[in-house]
Simulated scan of single mutants.
Amino acid sequence: MKKNTVRFAPWVGSKYAEGFCGLRILLVCESHYGDKKHERPTATPEIVKALALGERHPRATGKLRRHPHFTKIMSAVKNVRESFSRAQKKEFWHSVAYYNFLQEFIRDTRVLPPKDAWERGDSAFAEVLDVLAPDLIVCLSARNGRRIRSLANGVPVAVVNHPSSRFAYSKVNPVIAKHMVIALERKAQAPAFTSSDSFERWCEATASALPTPGSLLSESDKIAILLERRASMAALDDSVLA
């Protein structure tokens, strides 16, 4: 049995296998930010549900604000600038996969990731590619573009700036659109997508994850959720080391 190397399960939309515009698209950003005590296997689906889709954790005292990071990505991939309805957002995000390359939380956006964190992300990314078999990778990180291309095994890679760093639709959209055409041409020769146990597990993790509540919790709920996160992360890390 192949060892699992992915600590943070990717977001895998319920219609990912069908794809967006006929393509299985894997969106790759860099990292999660925050205290390491908040690491948990479902961090990515939790964040997409809260910040991209505007969903509320059942124990939270309110909803988190939707983040422009996700709106920019959606606008760039769809190659349009408009106000998206809730239904449009749901349709888009459930048609793609989203993954953060680094397999550890970085303390702050102003802190550079450790050099060895990039190397540790290689094997996890290889596993993600094997399981998700994307037709197109959109790498939303100029500094990580070379590494992603070297690991892509021939899958077209559109490398653009991160949404928080010199991100301009006039530069980003044409790059993604060009690579979508390349990916569609390549897909005509590619084998059909095959599901796997890991794929089903990540789909289930995406479906069942609750939106991250942020700090909008009572003190008792903050303690309870922190303990839940520690337990789930410890169980996953134990299985990786086994």
Rank of each mutant, 00 (worst) to 15 (best):
P174N: 13
E104H: 12
N173P: 03
V128T: 05
M180E: 09
V128N: 08
P174D: 14
C139W: 08
P156E: 03
R147V: 08
A177T: 11
S208D: 10
S85I: 00
R146Q: 06
N153P: 11
K115Q: 06
S165C: 11
S83K: 07
P213T: 00
N100Q: 12
K89R: 09
I182K: 10
C203W: 03
D135G: 05
N161R: 13
C139F: 08
V160M: 05
M180F: 05
A142C: 12
K171T: 15
D116M: 11
G121M: 08
C203G: 06
I148W: 09
P191T: 02
R110C: 04
E91D: 09
R147Y: 04
V175D: 08
K178N: 14
W93I: 00
I148Q: 10
A209S: 11
P163M: 02
L151P: 02
T109K: 06
E127H: 08
A192M: 01
R166C: 11
A205Q: 10
S208N: 10
R146I: 05
V157M: 03
F193H: 00
H94S: 07
W118K: 13
H179L: 12
A126I: 12
G214D: 07
K89Q: 01
S141H: 04
A168S: 15
E200F: 00
A205R: 11
E204V: 09
R147G: 05
A152M: 07
S218W: 05
A183P: 04
F92W: 00
E185N: 14
E219S: 13
L129S: 06
N144Y: 12
P191F: 01
R149D: 08
L102E: 09
V172W: 02
T109I: 11
E104I: 13
I137P: 05
S83T: 10
A168C: 15
A158Q: 02
V128H: 03
V160H: 05
D130E: 15
Y169I: 07
L216E: 08
